[in-house]
Simulated assay, not measured.
Amino acid sequence: MHDRSANVSWTKYIAFGLRIASELNLPELILAAPEAVEDVVIRQADLTAWSGQLEQANFVMLDERFMFQIPGTAIYAVREGKEIEVSIFSGADPDTVRLFVLGTCMGVLLMQRRILPIHGSAVVIGGRAYAFVGESGTGKSTLAAAFRQAGYQMVSDDVIAVKATASSAIVYPAYPQQKLGLDSLLQLEALRENKHARKRNNIRSLTDGNSVMPQYSDLRMLAGELNKYAVPAVDEFFNDPLPLGGVFELVADSPIRALMREGELMAVTEQPLNVLECLHTLLQHTYRRVIIPRMGLSEWSFDTAARMARKVEGWRLLRDSSVFTASEVVQRVLDIIRKEEKSYGSH
């Protein structure tokens, strides 16, 4: 049990396989039983004594804390995989404060606990978690939303927490929220009549004259994100650990480059990744990878990604960036996984 002040109001949550006691309100997370013994404490603290040092060099180890400062928002400290301290600046936007608690702080805390955070989205297919990674704008969140619309459950939409052991790679679910842009919301709504999509009722209007997913009474615009909204996904969220089945790297390709398969122009095409290519993809898309050397975890992160690359299959999916291809990518992913399952079954 962590040392906590009795005169402070604490709420228990669960995320990334961890039980969290937080002084900060974290509405994005799933509530845990009040009697649950916490693994992690999130508290407010006065960290202003380190402000000068952090202005000189951000993202550093100071004493036993990994610390960073977001001007106008807060100073953050993450310690031993067990504690996140937040020193909130006067007038800071609470949504922005939480954005860094659930993002960078949680990524650092996971690494301190030797859980590798991968930057991407993950969904459940056939009892396994499949990760979708790629550069910003390649459609990771939109693809996860398209899978949800097709009846599949989501595991994560930003940080995929993977614990790699000698025998397995296990994914711990994050929390039931997606970050989706208005364009994606409108395009996904247009797919609602697609044969792979599950229909919904009570669709609401987000902007005047535009009827978009989902049916929730309110969508909150995300702080620090251009025209992106927080979309709850409670009904389609899978909240138990499960094995990592594979990794798909999304690449938005120029339509000038013809995507050909068997002589036909394709909206989506795939390339299998060998172990070294899969390792490179995992390293390239490790969450907040630039701070790993400052934490002294370069060797650990490489070894962990190497173990994962040897255990799972990897593919690169190239899609025509000039058209909306979420439905085609969903079908291609399902086809690839079914083909792999048949291949395994034949041995």
Rank of each mutant, 00 (worst) to 15 (best):
K163M: 07
K163E: 15
A164W: 01
A164Q: 03
A164C: 11
A164P: 08
T165S: 14
T165K: 05
A166S: 14
A166Y: 07
A166F: 11
S167I: 14
S167L: 11
S168W: 00
S168F: 03
A169I: 02
A169T: 03
I170P: 00
I170H: 01
I170C: 05
V171C: 12
V171K: 04
V171W: 07
P173F: 01
P173D: 11
A174W: 10
P176A: 06
P176C: 11
P176S: 09
Q177T: 14
Q178M: 14
Q178R: 12
Q178S: 13
Q178G: 07
L180M: 05
G181N: 12
G181Y: 07
G181F: 15
L182H: 06
D183R: 11
L185T: 01
L185V: 10
L185I: 08
L186M: 04
Q187T: 08
Q187M: 08
L188V: 12
L188D: 06
L188W: 00
E189Y: 08
E189V: 02
R192G: 04
E193C: 06
E193M: 01
N194D: 15
K195W: 10
K195Y: 03
K195F: 06
H196T: 13
H196Y: 08
H196I: 14
H196V: 12
A197H: 06
A197G: 09
K199S: 11
K199E: 07
K199L: 02
R200L: 04
R200H: 13
R200A: 04
R200M: 15
N201W: 05
N202M: 09
I203P: 03
I203A: 05
I203H: 01
R204T: 10
R204Q: 15
S205W: 11
S205Y: 13
